[in-house]
Computed example of a mutant assay.
Amino acid sequence: MSAPTPLLLVGIHGHGRHHLRALHRLTGTGRVRLAGVCDPTPPAPGDDLEGHGLLPHFAGLEEALEATGARVTVIATPIHTHLPLARTALDHGSHILLEKPTTATLAEFDQLNAAAEAAGPSCQIGFQSLGSHALAAVRALVDSGTVGRVLGIGGAGTWKRTSHYYDRAPWAGQRRLNGHDVVDGALTNPFAHAVATALDLSRAAEEPVHDVELELFHAHPIQSDDTSCLRVRTPDGTPVTVAVTLCAPETTPPRLTVHGEHGRIDLDYTLDRVTVHRDGRPPRTTEHGRTPLLDNLLDHIEHGTPLLVPPTRTRAFMHVLEAVRTAPDPVAVPATRQRVRETPEGTHRVITGITDLVHRSARHLALFSELDPAWSPTALESHP
Rank of each mutant, 00 (worst) to 15 (best):
V232W: 06
P292R: 11
G148S: 07
G148Q: 10
W159S: 14
S122W: 13
H259T: 11
R264P: 08
L61G: 01
A335I: 02
T162A: 04
T88C: 15
G152N: 11
L65F: 02
H303D: 12
H95C: 05
P334M: 06
V195E: 08
D225V: 00
Y269D: 06
G185R: 04
H277N: 10
L130Q: 15
L199C: 08
Q223P: 07
Y166L: 12
A196N: 12
H288V: 07
A323D: 06
D266S: 12
P40Q: 14
P101M: 07
L9Y: 08
S228R: 05
D272A: 14
R349C: 00
H319K: 05
H57Q: 10
H277T: 09
S129W: 11
G263L: 00
E250Y: 13
L20K: 03
G173H: 06
P328Y: 05
H218D: 02
P344V: 01
H95M: 09
G346P: 02
R31Q: 11
T252M: 02
E108L: 04
P377L: 04
I12E: 07
K100G: 08
E63D: 13
V358E: 11
H359T: 08
T197N: 06
P43C: 11
S369D: 09
V150D: 12
L55Q: 10
H210D: 15
H364G: 05
A366Q: 12
L98C: 08
R168H: 01
T312W: 02
V212K: 00
P170T: 01
E108P: 04
P239V: 03
V72I: 10
S369M: 13
V240D: 00
P344A: 04
T314M: 13
G179V: 06
D372Q: 13
I265L: 08
E287W: 04
N189V: 13
A327M: 01
L61Y: 03
V212T: 08
T305G: 00
P40C: 09
L307M: 06
L177W: 12
A116W: 10
S376A: 15
E207N: 08
T352L: 15
A70F: 06
Q223Y: 02
V72A: 08
P282R: 11
A3E: 09
P384N: 15
L357H: 07
E345P: 02
C229K: 03
Q128V: 11
A198Y: 03
L380G: 10
I301H: 01
P334E: 12
P253F: 03
A104G: 15
L293G: 04
A115H: 10
R233C: 00
E206K: 13
D268F: 14
S163W: 01
N189G: 02
I125Y: 13
L65P: 02
P45Y: 12
P56E: 06
D181P: 09
L61M: 01
